[in-house]
Design a protein around this nucleic acid. Structure first.
Length: 212
DNA sequence: GACCAGGCACATC
DNA sequence: GATGTGCATGGT
């Protein structure tokens, strides 16, 4: 098969199988995780989330009304805990005012409009917004992250310093607009990135994309 | 001890 | 519009 982005997807899927993303029990937990995982490894986020659960704090009302210092302590393991506590609270304020803390209400807003609204929240950038749209709300937003750009860059498909929108358009213009495809593709890119497309010592010879 | 991780806002030029 | 910096823990 000629080099296509769908061909790349098939190679990844053949190599790794389904990734079962997003690892969370509820859409709200997806949103919290999306904010906590900013520039942070997922294992550290898992600890923070389980800590929130253990303290019965993982609900919109609890998080919104909890003192900043308390929240920061609970999410400490995720790093940047002061900033992330503020960002969570920014989102929860927005979530309360516009959607009555109800994910199904938020999901009724048309995708483009909702994306702009999310981006207007301080602390939510393009990747976090698209992660929420795709993995919490099931909307077809292709999520781009550092691994995505690195992999495209290493395969000379796009400059590694391309903007978020450039990388996202690169995928969305070439793939069918399908939630399940976007879901699995991003998860597979992260999986490959973690295991093989490392920054300093890439392990290309073992990568499912070798020879692509 | 250096390097890295499923970013983002903000300052400055 | 591009480029630099602060934010912080925990694993390799």
């Amino acid at each position: 098969m000629r080099k296509t982005l769908f061909g790349m997807y098939k190679k990844l899927y053949a190599g790794f199988g389904p990734q079962q993303w997003w690892p969370a029990e509820t859409p709200f937990e997806v949103i919290v995780g999306a904010i906590l995982t900013q520039n942070t490894s997922w294992v550290n986020v898992e600890k923070a989330i389980s800590n929130l659960k253990k303290n019965n704090a993982l609900s919109p009302s609890r998080l919104r009304t909890m003192p900043h210092a308390r929240l920061a302590t609970l999410i400490r393991s995720a790093g940047y805990y002061n900033i992330k506590a503020r960002r969570l609270k920014n989102f929860l304020q927005f979530f309360s005012v516009h959607f009555q803390q109800d994910v199904t209400v938020m999901a009724k807003v048309p995708q483009e409009r909702l994306r702009r609204q999310l981006l207007a929240v301080n602390g939510i950038g393009p990747e976090t917004a698209d992660s929420i749209l795709l993995y919490a709300l099931g909307k077809p937003a292709f999520v781009v992250d550092a691994y995505t750009k690195r992999i495209l860059g290493r395969h000379r498909l796009l400059r590694e310093d391309a903007t978020y929108e450039q990388a996202q358009n690169f995928f969305m213009k070439r793939l069918k607009i399908k939630v399940q495809l976007y879901n699995e593709y991003h998860a597979l890119l992260v999986r490959t990135g973690k295991e093989y497309c490392l920054k300093k010592k890439p392990r290309c010879s073992m990568c499912p994309l070798r020879g692509f």
